[in-house]
Design a protein around this nucleic acid. Structure first.
Length: 415
DNA sequence: TGTCCACAGGAAATACGGGGGT
DNA sequence: ACCCCCGTATTTCCTGTGGACA
């Protein structure tokens, strides 16, 4: 009987906390935690609110030929991150699959998501895995072999094959190989009617592509504009409804988040993340979500991005960043040149028992940090005193401190 | 006007380590 | 076990350069 008493106590306690909670269902604040049917449900509500309806119409038109047995052309979807390209397409594919099933049209949909940057080899390998044609390889197998495996796997399917290649621009270096394979070689070697759908974050993506491939891509383009504040409000309202306590949101909060997000990037995912962070802060503070809290959440989210980025970065990059921080602290004027940075880096490596790279490689590390905007650098000629990169840390001091201590934790600093 | 600093940044070479074939 | 192929990371080698200084 003792145990049931404890059980009741725990239960009451949890119930009590839950009733004060702001977050009722945290999963709806993070798409990755949603199971497929929940995602579709959210999507449906979003589309019912007339968001992205224009794009849906265009997609319908583009794929309409399938129902009549014709072959649609390839398709390209362009737009910045978080403008709903992937979701819209997936939602549409779901509908299309349903229709084809009813009409008994053989259709196969594959979604190849190249979420992170990878070379041609990895991309092909991922495709092969997706089609169950091969296992995961690191290296060691020729590109040719990989292509052949993909082809043989598809040899017996002769319906419509829609290959949805998400974030194609992540194929770097020898992307021509990859594209040539998909656009020219694959359609010739498999019986299926292949429709390629490319999604890219960058409008200029086809510019630096083999012209022969480009001409074969008789692309139908569909551009996704960033969400405007009204769209974002719809999206946020749905999340609030599903995830939060109805009384927990002060008036104006949704409008504010939507306005901030649309002004800065129009990225729905980040808008939802901001909502989530605000709710989390509110819960910790034991208050409603206020406008002030939203501001705090925004800056914290911003800082978290940098910290996460660095934490998962290769050690050499972290060392370079650490060295830049140290060197900047020593020099009064706040800017340093490549030489100073490299010296600091060598010392840092010594302390961290890390093999230092050459100056050439170090230069590349600096430009990588620049790309992530962890620092700013520009080449500067000091005349008689040579040419150098001027390196500036223009992040808030507080953030720099956090970054630096984060880096130190990742190394066994041996004085 | 020419020199020359202190690097930038491109290209080619080399090192490395996983993986297949035999 | 051995050798070869592959992609990736790093090194080596190299040419280029804006402008202060003489």
């Amino acid at each position: 009987m003792e145990t049931s008493h404890i059980k009741k106590k725990v239960f009451d306690e949890m119930e009590n906390v839950a009733s004060h909670d702001i977050i009722m269902n945290a999963r709806y604040l993070n798409d990755e935690q949603l199971i497929h049917s929940e995602q579709l449900q959210v999507l449906e509500e979003i589309f019912n609110a007339n968001v992205r309806s224009e794009e849906m119409t265009q997609l319908s038109r583009h794929f309409a030929p399938i129902l009549k047995g014709n072959h649609p052309t390839h398709l390209a979807l362009w737009g910045k991150t978080g403008t709903g390209k992937t979701l819209t397409m997936r939602f549409f594919m779901g509908i299309l699959a349903e229709m084809c099933k009813k009409k008994k049209i053989p259709l196969r949909l594959e979604h190849l998501n190249l979420a992170t940057a990878r070379p041609c080899f990895r991309a092909l390998n991922d495709l092969a895995c997706l089609l169950n044609a091969s296992k995961k390889y690191q290296k060691g197998i020729s590109l040719e072999e990989m292509m052949i495996r993909i082809e043989t796997k598809l040899a017996k399917f002769s319906g419509y094959l829609i290959l949805f290649v998400d974030e194609v621009d992540n194929v770097r270096r020898d992307k021509d190989n990859f594209m040539t394979f998909l656009v020219r070689r694959l359609p010739q070697r498999i019986p299926a009617k292949l429709v390629l759908v490319f999604v890219s974050n960058r409008l200029d993506w086809p510019e630096h592509l083999d012209p022969r491939v480009k001409s074969f891509l008789k692309l139908n383009e569909l551009i996704f504009e960033p969400y405007d504040a009204i769209d974002l409000q719809h999206i946020l309202r749905i999340r609030v409804e599903k995830a939060l306590h109805p009384k927990a949101v002060e008036p104006g909060v949704i409008e504010k988040i939507a306005a901030m997000a649309s002004r800065e990037h129009g990225d729905a995912r980040r808008a939802v993340a901001l909502l989530g962070k605000s709710a989390y802060l509110a819960e910790k503070a034991g208050t409603k979500i206020t406008l002030g809290l939203v501001d705090r959440a925004a800056t914290e989210l911003d800082q978290d991005r940098y910290l996460m980025l660095l934490r998962s970065a290769p050690p050499q990059l972290q060392a370079a960043m650490g060295a830049v921080v140290e060197a900047t602290r020593q020099s009064e004027h706040g800017t340093i040149g490549t030489g100073e940075a490299y010296d600091a880096y060598r010392m840092f490596c010594k302390r961290a028992e890390l093999r230092p790279l050459t100056g050439r490689a170090f230069g590349d590390l600096i430009s990588e940090l620049d790309i992530y905007s962890l620092l700013r650098s520009r080449v500067l000629s000091r005349g008689r005193y040579g040419r150098t990169r001027e390196i500036i840390l223009d992040l808030p001091r507080e953030l720099v401190d956090k970054i630096y201590s984060g880096i130190q934790l990742n190394f066994e600093m041996h004085d």
